[in-house]
């Protein structure tokens, strides 16, 4: 009995953490959209919500993070009313998630969270450009890739540093104790 009890509580904790992270990710997206910097690179953004996805990948399993990514993308589409571009953001988020989950699993010894966050940010850009080039059937959109690569490094470093500060703080909370076994 105690083992099944423990299991139930773990599932419950996971669900709670995903829900909280999704809420924070959405709030971060909203806060980001209010920052009045007009970068002259189309499609470039800070990607603050990636902090939560990184933290989720760190504490929970990849499939939990996938749930978070889908939730976050759907919720932001609802809030910003960008349903017509949902396809593009979903493409970008899922590709970014795949790259980060893979690196988290395989490259953890060589890459820090900063490297993983850079790779994830750039994968997001590439995924969106790929979706756009499929829809418009032109490769000209990749014209903006170099600028996005450079800005992706800068924002990726910022997001990675933020995640590096967030994760140790969260680890001290009792809620995250059971996720730190491995």
């Amino acid at each position: 009995m105690p083992s099944s009890d423990e299991e139930t509580s773990l599932v419950l904790k996971r669900t709670v953490v995903i829900a909280i992270f999704a809420a924070v990710a959405v709030v971060l997206s909203i806060a980001e959209s209010m920052i009045p910097i007009n970068i002259q690179i189309p499609g470039a953004k800070l990607g603050l919500a990636n902090i939560m996805i990184l933290a989720c990948l760190y504490f929970l399993r990849a499939r939990d993070a996938l749930m978070l990514v889908v939730l976050k993308t759907l919720l932001t589409a609802f809030i910003f009313g960008t349903f017509s571009s949902l396809l593009f953001s979903l493409f970008g988020s899922l590709f970014s998630f795949a790259v980060m989950a893979l690196l988290m699993k395989l490259g953890r010894r060589r890459l820090s969270l900063i490297g993983i966050s850079i790779a994830g940010g750039i994968a997001h850009n590439i995924g969106q450009l790929a979706a756009a080039s499929i829809v418009f059937s032109t490769l000209n959109i990749f014209y903006y890739l170099p600028a996005l690569l450079i800005s992706g490094i800068a924002t990726g470093i910022l997001v990675g540093i933020a995640a590096k500060y967030l994760i140790p703080s969260l680890s001290r909370l009792a809620l995250f104790d059971s996720f730190l076994k491995d």
Binding site: G107, R110, L111, S112, I114, G115, I118, A119, I122, Y143, L145, P146, A147, L149, I150, G152, I153
Partner: peptide, 24 residues
């Protein structure tokens, strides 16, 4: 920052430059 991070950044910057120079 680990050494792998710096390697990743270098590779990305190199790729960006490679794409940009012929355009200039």
């Amino acid at each position: 920052m680990k050494r792998g991070d710096l390697l990743l950044i270098t590779v990305i910057v190199a790729a960006a430059l490679l794409l940009m120079v012929p355009r200039w």
